[in-house]
């Protein structure tokens, strides 16, 4: 291996994105330490990477809920047709088959989580657990969120983390467990915006657990609310009513 030339942009991207093995990473870093010009370009690459990681995903990146629903409806219709034709009994009710979004925004919520976990309000272990859980939720690692927050149970005062746990349980296809977490939390007593978020999760959990009457009454209440959760509820209310359990 020689280090006489400059590092390529490709190598800098690989290094920044964590795609190099240990040997490659060490070699690249060794080169950068002795090459101010390469270090300068690496600074540009990492700056772009950090800028991306601190920006929300553009609105157009995720398919619109409506479009998602349309596509899902088409798929479900096609699947239903296959069921009719073959006469087979296929369960269509999966954790994401209803198109309901159970992901929670993290920005404001997590700053409040931090304050709830301020020194004196929590042990170091709880704080570390919360940190890890938030990072795992951000990555979409729901299994890890459940394992971190589900056992041992969190003290009741860490309300935002209960919501993350419920959201993760729903994403994992465990609506009954999510209902249990949310009922213990007493969502109606939460301050906003957590109240609406908690009520939305409870609606989804009840609906996925087949408790449609209880779910519908929450949906009606949420559909009258302003904001993002209200939008989600109105979109859900406009869809065809779910089949019974």
């Amino acid at each position: 291996m020689t280090t006489t030339a400059h590092a390529s942009d490709d190598l800098l991207i690989d290094l920044s994105a964590g795609l190099l093995d240990e040997e490659g990473r060490a070699g690249a870093l060794r080169h950068l330490r002795g090459c101010p010009a390469c270090e300068g370009r690496f600074l540009e690459v990492t700056r772009q990477a950090e800028r991306l990681s601190t920006s929300p995903l553009p609105a157009g990146l995720r398919p619109a809920a409506a479009a998602r629903w349309t596509r899902r409806a088409s798929l479900l219709a096609a699947a239903a047709a296959i069921v009719i034709v073959t006469g087979a009994s296929i369960a269509l009710r999966g954790p994401r088959a209803d198109g309901l979004d159970v992901r929670l925004p993290l920005d404001a919520e997590m700053s409040l989580t931090r304050s709830a976990l301020a020194p004196g309000a929590a042990t170091e272990t709880d704080a570390a657990r919360a940190d890890e859980a938030v990072a795992a939720y951000h990555r979409g690692d729901h299994t890890r969120v459940v394992s971190l927050l589900g056992d041992p149970p969190l003290p009741k005062r860490y309300e935002p983390l209960h919501l993350l746990l419920a959201s993760a349980l729903l994403a994992e296809g465990r609506p009954a467990d999510a209902v249990s977490v949310l009922e213990q939390l007493d969502t109606l007593t939460l301050p906003q915006p957590w109240r609406d978020r908690g009520r939305w999760l409870l609606y989804v959990a009840l609906r996925r657990d087949g408790r449609n009457d209880a779910a519908e009454s929450i949906l009606k209440e949420l559909a009258a609310s302003p904001g993002e959760i209200g939008d989600r509820a109105r979109a859900a209310a406009a869809r065809p009513a779910p089949a019974g359990p």
Partner: peptide, 25 residues
Amino acid sequence: QTARRIPAAAIEPGTLPLADARARW
């Protein structure tokens, strides 16, 4: 500024002599 003085060929893919030159991304 120093980076601007790098010859263009030196920063094209495939010219890096460090370890495995093939880009992973």
